[in-house]
């Protein structure tokens, strides 16, 4: 499917699904991060926890993406990137991301998005400057990819809360998992 079609699809699915207010989402997410900071103290540890939480969400959320967008085949990593950017981001965050900086092998790209509803109302104090505030997104993407047989690494590289001009997540394809035949098959 072409980019334009995917964008239209994302819009349609977004319009037809139930939504909650962006404030509710931002505040709920904010209090979760706040609590993690209280519990774990170290921003690095909090990044890890957010990633893990995201992973648990991602492995379920992917079914929702597929069922609602009715995209029943994902033919390549390049296609999948557009689906994440144009459909999935629109469905759950209401924003569309761009896929930029592809490497020559087409196994790495960056997701770029200017608005992040999760970071609304948030300012990062100096002592938490190592925190990737919306790191949950990395976990979600990683979990979702794993369910469609692609092992990826996902890292925040730019965040507006840190003074960057945009938000950017780097996604690196490590391995295409092949469908294995049943194990104990004699």
């Amino acid at each position: 499917m072409s980019k334009v079609n995917l964008q239209r699809l994302g819009e349609t699915v977004f319009q037809s699904s139930d939504r909650v207010s962006a404030e509710l989402l931002a505040l709920t997410y904010g209090s979760t991060v706040k609590q993690l900071l209280v519990d774990y103290e170290e921003p690095d540890e909090v990044n890890k926890q957010l990633d893990q939480m995201g992973y648990n969400i991602g492995i379920r959320l992917i079914e929702d993406v597929i069922a609602n967008s009715k995209i029943y085949t994902i033919s390549s990593f390049v296609d999948s990137a557009e689906i994440v950017a144009k459909v999935a981001f629109k469905m759950y965050l209401g924003v569309v991301a761009n896929t930029v900086d592809w490497n020559s092998d087409k196994t790495e790209f960056s997701l770029q998005f200017d608005d992040n509803p999760l970071t609304e109302f948030t300012e990062l104090p100096d002592r938490y400057s190592d925190l990737w505030y919306a790191n949950i997104l990395c976990g979600i993407i990683r979990g979702a990819y794993e369910m469609v047989q692609m092992k990826v690494e996902c890292k925040y590289t730019k965040c507006v809360l840190r003074g960057d001009d945009t938000n950017e997540i780097r996604i690196v394809l490590r391995e295409m998992l092949l469908e294995r035949p049943p194990l104990d098959d004699e």
Partner: peptide
């Protein structure tokens, strides 16, 4: 036998 599978392997 009717068959349908998803990208997640279901």
């Amino acid at each position: 036998l009717h068959y349908f599978d998803t990208p997640t392997g279901l």
